[in-house]
Amino acid sequence: MAETPASTLAIEPTATTRALPARVSWWGTLASDPGSRVALGFLALLGLAALFAPWLTTYGPAQVLDPVGLQSLPPSASHWFGTDPVSRDVFSRMLHGARVSLRIAVLAAALSATVGLAWGTIAALSRPLIDQVMMRTVDALLSIPRLLLVLTIIALWPQVTPTALAVVLGGTGWFGISRLARTEALAIRQREFTAAATALGVSTPVLLLRHILPHAVGPVLVASTIAVGQVVVMEAGLYFLGVVPDVPASWGSIIQDGRNAPLTWWWLTLFPGVFLVAVSLSVNTIAGRLRSAINPRQLHGR
């Protein structure tokens, strides 16, 4: 033993060198949390109700029943959510409105997520100059209030159908997501397995698709879940304001119908209002739960 100059400086893995989780079980994460179960259940129920609205309701969304006899009735056994000033059944209008709201919200969120993910990850992998230009563009767009942006586009848009509205809302909702996606992609770029792939001769598009995107999807998904809630509220607001042409039924326009006497006609404000809050809450509960599962990380809205 007399001749042994040696030292070993093995370093134990620290928190910073922790492995990325192999795969988050989204379903398991949600199922194990009572709050998320309730939220998920509510959204599933609402989704089904919206899907089968024509079969679940007795009246059409715009069907005028009896402008004299059935005008502005409070909730009753025959009209669960009451009727509005032109004698339409509010329950039927709510379910048909959910069809519009949820479709717009999901479409818009999917669009934001896709564009944001692509923009952010491509910026992260591009040359510094291109990256700078792309991210400065996002900064500029983020500095304009989103509502202003939406109203401007709508004013210029010839025919704002619900799908068009989804495109407008989705098209103005990806800026924050792209920042998040870029941050994620840069963090994953630091992981040595991406360097290993480059050293193997893997090309940049393949690197992006195989090694970077799959890891950035999680946080982006969480961010776009939050976006669903925001879009539902915003779109209700636009219909309420009447800046977009009305559709047969929407939650915003139901509230609008009751705006002349919100206290007397409380059911016209209460039901859409409660549903809006419930959707927002559910979506945020689920997003919060998913976020804590992937990583406690700061997400900014929009």
């Binding site: 033993m1 001749e3 042994t4 100059p5 040696a6 030292s7 070993t8």
Partner: peptide, 21 residues
């Protein structure tokens, strides 16, 4: 300990270290 390590684990650790020379 270094003059006469008694446990096979200690002996193993000492042997596993690279040594100059």
């Amino acid at each position: 300990l270094f003059a006469s390590p008694q446990h096979p684990y200690t002996q193993g650790l000492l042997r596993a270290m690279p040594r100059v020379g």
